[in-house]
Amino acid sequence: MANNNDLNKNSKVNVREMIANNKEKNSLSNITEKLVPTLLFLITAVSILTTIGIIYTLLSEAIEFFRRVPIWEFFTSVELDPFGPDPEFGILPLINGTIISSLIAMAVAGPIGLMTAVYLSEYASEKVRRTLKPLLEVLAGIPTIVYGFFAFTFVTPILQLIIPGLSLTNILSPGLVIGVMIIPMIASLSEDAMTSVPNSMREGALALGSTKLEVALKVVIPAAFSGIISSFVLAISRAIGETMIVAIASGSSKDFTFDITESMQTMTAYIVEISSGDISTGTTMYYSLYAVAITLFVFTLIMNLLARYISRKFREEY
């Protein structure tokens, strides 16, 4: 009993001490509690600052460019000759090259990606789907420089056997290879959209005697349409921003042409070419980088916003 009292006495003292200790500790941890959110907010601000930095650097240098080259001329001229004695800066050849390479890419990736998505979501068993999907994603993980090498040293020579007039650098080969690169993107995003179509709709159609093909074409694709379109738009945005494949395999011709067997330059490849050469700050050529880059930036931004708008606005809720 006495022993027990002793213990109680001791523990009373301990509790007081503990409270005192805790208060001391708490004041320290109170500071941490207040400091941490501020610190984390500052870290988060970096992502906002990155956006501001991108827009600010592109815009300020592009404005300097438009002081030297009229904006009207830049966006309407088909003459691009930055290295000539009398330099010309019309962006249309680059926009043309960009659109053509993206169209070729989508001609490959659109149908193949969509059919892949239909197969994975409507036909494949769970087991097959689980093996094929990660394998397809490997395709998206290959660095673009490797695709560039592949386009230049393998696809172009093979295409030259089929199309005799094909030049060593041409827009066709990189366009096709970009297409292969974005197949997984379309397949995976479209498949997600198709998988989220409720099974009851499929079962309804199947019960009426539809084949799986009819279910896919008349029920699943219409229901998942907004998701599919938004995956296409995102893929186009990826194709527009793709750099190394075209920089290697499409050469640097700045002619305004629609002949896909010829070399064409995209906006991205132009930036690589101009910045790789050791250009000095302050030249019109240097500023033209930013004018082209901001055009590219606006192109991809519009595509990305459009993709999000489509998938949000036109989503069918079930």
């Binding site: 988060t44 906002i48 991108i54 650097t57 945005s237 793709e242 930036i271 690589v272 930036f297």
Partner: peptide
């Protein structure tokens, strides 16, 4: 706003980051 900003950043072509780095870090 932060979330939208991050989604947009993820869509910016890598070459544009190159120009950002060239302007800010290198120059």
């Amino acid at each position: 706003i932060i979330q939208t900003n991050i989604a947009n950043l993820a869509g910016v072509p890598s070459i544009v980051y190159g120009l950002l780095g060239l302007t800010i870090f290198v120059r």
